[in-house]
Design a protein around this nucleic acid. Structure first.
Length: 400
DNA sequence: GGTGCTGTCCTAACCACAGTCAAGT
DNA sequence: CTACTTGACTGTGGTTAGGACAGCA
């Protein structure tokens, strides 16, 4: 049938379509049939008989959705092909430390437990475990039913010992619990509960007034330091597609604002890049640069900007209240969104003002600090910059 | 088990200045 | 109402001090 690398049944970009039904995106690759199948076709085909049920299948890469997955990234809870794995996990030091495990083939009927040749749990099971973890983690963000979930108990256990040491969170990613509120480092980024607080943030509002402050109370290091290029949670990039969406619960298809679709950008899992990226890569550096002009234009702001110097922490509905009103469906949808956002995390630093970056790079420094430009340096700069201007302009005669 | 030392890792702060915005004239 | 001025503020990158942690004696 089809070769693994062929894409004859797909568009030039986008998820590969199921070879059987040719309508749904493929979910698994069957080696025996050399076919990409969606979940339903996989279930139908491989439950047909015992022989078919023994077909070796692997997940399709969640990033490109075009190649069989080779690794499972536990940190991102994503199955990745070797190419995407290399791309994503070489992006920065933090990503490179993600724990990945090779994905073994799946056997057996699709609905049943999937065992490896030796009966060990492989493939989907690995994912299932991870999803359980995800479920717990996501549930903890939802602040729901803290009396009947193990998550709440777990959260309590976490916080038995950390009341005086929030710094623990820096490295162990514990969630501190302040008066029943979970201000986890990720909650602001991955849940709509807080999206309302953060919408209109630096994606859409270049006057974010130091968003670090908004969640500084959590004491959680977002690992998005300005210099270390671990991405940007606070003042850095927040292009998770959640901002400005308002109250929508189900995963929403967002549209890029005035920017070209960038299929080659695998900094995040690019099956979502259409929805998340207001950043574009314009240089060889592994950062997304947001054109300044796009920042003010692409505004979908659901909250007005808070007064300067204020912390707009509770401008939205109280978290506890919002969460307690969730129906099971809402909860499931939010968990789904949480997972999807988790998969689309981008850890690269986003440059929002390329011009400022350019200035900063050319600026003289003393021990890393910006130093004042001397007159001589300014003249030299003018000498070098003037020819550039003349290249694009109409000829400005340099004055000496 | 508790304490002190050492090495490693990580983060916040610092700096100057172009650009932006809001308020005032 | 429009145009201009002024001051406050933001964001940018490389370096470093200092805190946190792990490992060892």
């Amino acid at each position: 049938m089809l070769d693994e690398d062929t894409n004859t049944n797909t568009t030039s970009w986008g998820p590969r379509v199921c070879d059987t039904c040719r309508s749904a995106p493929c979910a698994v690759f069957c080696r025996a049939d050399s076919a990409y199948l969606c979940a339903s076709c996989d279930a139908r085909v491989h439950a047909a008989n015992t022989l078919a049920s023994r077909h070796e299948r692997v997940w399709v890469c969640e990033a490109c959705e075009r190649a069989p997955a080779a690794f499972l990234c536990k940190a991102d809870a994503a199955s990745l092909c070797s190419s995407c794995d290399a791309d994503i996990h070489s992006a920065n030091p933090l990503a490179s430390r993600h724990q990945r495990v090779p994905i073994g083939p799946m056997y057996g009927p699709p609905s049943g437990p999937l065992n490896g040749p030796n009966g060990e749990l492989v493939g989907m099971v690995e994912d299932e475990e991870d999803e359980d973890d995800d479920e717990e983690e996501a549930a903890s963000w939802l602040l729901l039913n803290n009396t009947n979930t193990t998550t709440a108990a777990a959260a309590t256990n976490h916080n038995n010992s950390n009341s005086s040491n929030n710094n623990q969170n820096h490295h162990h990613h514990q969630q501190s619990n302040n008066n029943g509120f979970l201000f986890g480092g990720e909650v602001d980024e991955y849940l709509d509960l807080v999206d309302c607080n953060s919408c209109g943030d630096d994606d859409n509002n270049h006057h974010n007034n130091n968003n670090n402050n908004q969640f500084a109370v959590d004491g959680v290091d977002h690992h998005y330091g300005q210099q270390q290029q671990y991405g940007g949670g606070g003042g850095g990039q927040r292009s998770y597609g959640g901002g400005g969406v308002g109250d929508s619960v189900v995963p929403v298809q967002h549209f890029q604002l005035g920017l070209e679709f960038e299929p080659s950008n695998k900094a995040g899992y690019n099956n979502y890049s259409a929805s998340i990226s207001q950043s574009v890569s314009v240089s060889s550096m592994e950062v997304g640069v947001v054109p300044e002009s796009s920042i003010s234009n692409g505004s979908i702001i659901c909250h007005s900007r808070p007064p300067k110097g204020t912390i707009d922490l509770f401008s939205g509905p109280p978290m506890q209240m919002a969460a307690s009103h969730l129906t099971p469906m809402d909860r499931e949808a939010r968990v789904l969104r949480y997972r999807e956002k988790k998969k689309t995390r981008k850890f690269e630093k986003t440059i929002r003002y390329a011009s400022r970056k350019a200035y900063a790079e050319t600026r003289p420094r003393i021990k890393g600090r910006f130093a004042k430009r001397t007159d001589v340096e300014a003249e030299v700069d003018q000498m070098f910059s003037t020819p550039l201007m003349t290249e694009v302009g109409y000829g400005i005669v340099p004055s000496f």
